[in-house]
Nucleic acid binder design. Structure first.
Lengths: 223, 223
DNA sequence: TAGATTGTTAATCGATTAACAATC
DNA sequence: TAGATTGTTAATCGATTAACAATC
């Protein structure tokens, strides 16, 4: 059996974006899309769309385009959404609760099965039908339930500790909001959310726009 | 005056990451770093570090390395953090409150100056010293205060409406958590947070790890 | 001075775009 | 069939890495 060639990370990074746009098309009741259509919506080239899908063997039909439903399914599968992902939220403060309330995840097979917090003020509260448990019960819970992903929404100073704990308990996926660098075994996947990086990207863009304006103004003056 | 050459977006995207690592060094009391040190921590090449900084003229000293404090300042300036950024939170639910409570922003000159919500249940509550106001007061507030950035944490169905409103009121930066595509004039900067894309990136990684394991297992068996 | 490490150019690598034959 | 649009290769472009002279 020949080794399938490695898909480049540039392509992978675009997949969730394709997925998102395809869901929008689906909601609009559009069942078929050409690489050209899709590329215009997403502000990329049609060549890139075809090239990207070609990496996976191609999902389209010459002279017709791509079937939206099929494409959603195929890309979903590539991204690992062909199964239910059971998730627990560790840290049931505002952020943890915000995520638990985010209904659109559930539609895509991401299911919150437990929430944990150290703070007695939160323990016992119900969020979207899930009772917040004390963190002491984490070990017991994880040995009785199948949990795929732990969402880390504790304050940063507790993050490493709880991560070590769930890793020991066998977790294989971490969605980390605690902006701490985590060290985990290489069979555990980590995705970090760095909100501050996004905020800085915003101020950079704002600065660029201000500079652009200043330049145009200067040009006009010197005329 | 010659046009300074355009910095590539690949470089820009790395700047917040450099910034983050440099802050860690600073906290550790390290005042000087070589491209080699930094590259190892960040898991990139030292060549890239030097090349990246060279884009801005170079911040280092031959035979010595880079001064951490200087570097933090320079990169901060490039990213537009050389000024206070006044921000308002629109949508004071769990997510809006979580962001308002995120203290590390404030240290970097990101200051929440107002919070707004439609829901009377939230109005009047105090979050980190800021009273949540009814959205009706947005227009009045913005004409009396200097606001740089609006953080959009309303449910997606209200997002476009409130964005149109603040754009009309002159906002120049939008940090959008509502996973809706926004259309704004081209002098308004937008940074979108798509949490679901990050979550899909995680399940993709998890799937890759599972596949890798399966392959190793197969190899072992066939021996 | 000798050693270290940047600044900077050149070489390589990979990703994007162009082009068009294949085919529905 | 004619028209449309993908699949797929080749060309181009840009980003990363290598190398080393400059210089602290």
């Amino acid at each position: 059996m020949k080794d399938e060639k490695k898909i480049s990370s540039a392509v992978i990074k675009r997949l969730p974006k394709y997925y998102r746009y395809l869901l929008i098309l689906q909601q609009m009741g559009i069942s078929r899309v050409s690489s050209n259509d899709l590329s215009k919506r997403m502000e990329i080239t049609s060549s890139q769309v075809r090239q990207d899908f070609f990496n996976f063997g191609g999902f389209g039909l010459q002279g017709y385009g791509y079937d939206v439903t099929l494409l959603v399914k195929e890309i979903g599968n590539i991204l690992g959404m062909d199964k239910i992902n059971n998730m627990i939220v560790i840290g049931a403060g505002n952020l943890g609760q915000a995520i638990a309330n985010h209904t659109s995840f559930e539609k895509r097979g991401f299911k919150i099965v437990g929430m944990f917090d150290n703070n007695p003020r939160h323990v016992g509260d119900i969020v979207r039908g899930i009772e917040i448990m004390h963190s002491d019960r984490l070990t017991e819970f994880m040995s009785n339930h199948s949990v795929d992903i732990a969402i880390i929404t504790v304050p940063r100073e507790y993050a490493r500790e709880v991560v070590d704990k769930v890793v020991k308990l066998g977790i294989k996926g971490l969605w980390n909001f605690a902006s701490v660098e985590l060290e985990v075994p290489d069979d555990v996947a980590v995705e970090n959310i760095h909100l501050s990086e996004s905020l800085m990207a915003l101020t950079y863009k704002m600065k660029e726009i201000r500079n652009r304006k200043a330049k145009v103004l200067k040009k006009t003056e010197s005329k």
